[in-house]
């Protein structure tokens, strides 16, 4: 059976600032990040759709101790965003100073761009991720 939306396809679209998800033909639910089965009803009848790339911050953290190989990125903010279409996704938040970020960012509306993690010896290649800014 054909995989409906691979990470490669998702990542390539992100590199053009397009966020892709999947819509279920059975129950109408939207699944992001992409999977084989609908997040709600487990149907395989799901097809790719373009998301708006806008939403609200639901939680965040400022990271000061990085993984090996990502020292130069530190400090940085990870945010979980509830998309206007419903699903939550993980990305970074830019335009806010990590050391002074506070709980007031929760609930703020954001728009999406992207950055690419170039990969390391464990990661089987590169991967793009959403980067959000407060609007």
């Amino acid at each position: 059976m054909n995989y409906p939306l691979t990470f490669k396809q998702y990542s390539d679209a992100l590199k053009e600032d397009r966020l892709m998800g999947l819509k279920c033909k059975v129950c109408g639910s939207i699944t992001v990040p992409p999977k084989m089965a609908c997040r709600n009803c487990a149907s395989f009848e799901i097809e790719p759709m373009a998301m708006k790339g806008t939403g609200k911050i639901r939680t965040y953290t400022s990271v000061f101790v990085p993984s090996e190989g990502r020292e130069t990125e530190c400090p940085y903010i990870i945010a979980m965003v509830e998309l206007d279409e419903g699903p939550w996704i993980m990305g970074n938040l830019k335009g806010v100073t990590p050391a002074s970020a506070g709980l007031d960012v929760i609930g703020k509306s954001v728009k999406m761009g992207h950055e690419v993690f170039p990969g390391d010896k464990y990661s089987a290649g590169e991967g793009a991720r959403p980067v959000f800014t407060i609007v």
């Binding site: 990470f7 953290t61 990271v63 101790v65 990085p66 993980m90 970074n92 690419v116 991967g127």
Partner: peptide, 13 residues
């Protein structure tokens, strides 16, 4: 590894 690690997720994070 695909949908979270690129954003720099760590276990404490």
């Amino acid at each position: 590894a695909r949908y979270e690690y690129p954003a720099g997720i760590t276990f404490p994070a």
